Amino acid sequence: MRNTKPPSPAVRSTALSVCALLAATVLTACGAGDGGGVKAAGDAKGGVSTLETGSPAPGGKPGAPTSTKVDSRRPQLRMDSSEEEINRLDDAYHACLQSHGVPMNTERAKLAGAKQASPVQGEGITKKYKPAFDACLVKMPLEPPELDSKVNPHYTDDYRVYVKCINNAGMRVHMLQDEHGIAIGWTYDDDHGSNGLSDAEQTKIDKKCKTEAFGGKKG
């Protein structure tokens, strides 16, 4: 999951992911941080899980709106992208943000044993360091086309299957939709929605269900 948008604490669970979500590793991918409470696609712990391509959220990968010109230069993830590949691309993106002065969650990275920290989350950070996010957007990985509602005509139906699979695996979550009925992520049903599962277990469930629901190959 890649994991996007600053929800209230009650909407916790951004980006495995995201992120994403859309998405990736437990602690370092998709900019999963301490301040936003948003779950990135592929990040099985946190807040709202989002899969939208080109719609980075404060809890996922904040930055400027995508453009065709920039997107054509961004690395493209696949449904069968390995964790190693995803982590490498995420680290490159986060390293770019760090080199441009964006504050990093260094303590969290240290606890996770990660070499590259992810950015601190929050709308204030996104606004204050917008030039940095604009400059580094070209390094932010694009989600697989299957996870883009603008490309996949069955996106929301696939998302329902994805969420059902997560629930069948023992987590307690529900899908979130925008005003047009398009899936924008999922969140835990309550504070015990993780059902005692570890971060690693949730990440494994998330990736398995995402892969099955959106028809990708197993990496």
Rank of each mutant, 00 (worst) to 15 (best):
R2S: 09
T4P: 06
P6V: 12
P6F: 09
A10D: 14
A10H: 07
V11H: 11
R12V: 12
S13D: 12
T14Y: 09
A15S: 11
V18K: 10
C19W: 01
A20N: 07
L22Y: 01
A23Q: 08
T28G: 15
T28S: 15
A29H: 06
A32V: 08
G33P: 01
G33S: 13
G33H: 09
G36A: 15
V38W: 05
K39S: 07
K39R: 10
D43R: 09
A44T: 03
A44R: 06
A44P: 08
G46F: 02
G46S: 06
S49R: 10
E52Y: 07
P56H: 01
G59S: 12
G60C: 02
K61V: 13
K61E: 12
K61D: 11
A64P: 09
T66P: 03
K69R: 08
K69D: 13
V70K: 04
D71F: 04
R74F: 00
R74N: 02
R74G: 03
M79P: 02
S81R: 02
E84Y: 00
I86A: 15
R88D: 10
A92H: 02
H94T: 05
H94E: 13
A95R: 14
A95N: 12
C96G: 05
L97H: 06
L97N: 08
G101Y: 00
P103S: 09
T106W: 01
T106N: 11
E107T: 13
R108Y: 00
K110C: 01
A112F: 03
K115S: 11
Q116K: 05
Q116I: 04
S118G: 14
S118W: 02
P119W: 06
E123Y: 04
E123S: 14
E123C: 06
K127W: 00
K130M: 12
P131L: 04
P131S: 01
D134E: 15
K139E: 14
P144F: 05
P145R: 05
E146W: 05
E146M: 06
L147H: 05
S149K: 05
S149G: 01
K150G: 04
K150Q: 07
V151N: 01
N152D: 00
N152V: 03
P153R: 04
Y155G: 02
D157P: 02
D157F: 01
R160V: 11
Y162V: 03
K164L: 06
A169T: 05
A169P: 00
M171H: 03
H174R: 08
M175F: 02
D178R: 10
D178A: 08
E179H: 10
E179K: 13
H180T: 12
I182R: 11
Y188T: 07
Y188S: 04
D189L: 06
D189Q: 10
D190F: 07
G193C: 10
S198W: 08
A200V: 13
E201P: 03
Q202V: 14
K204E: 13
K207R: 12
K208T: 11
F214G: 02
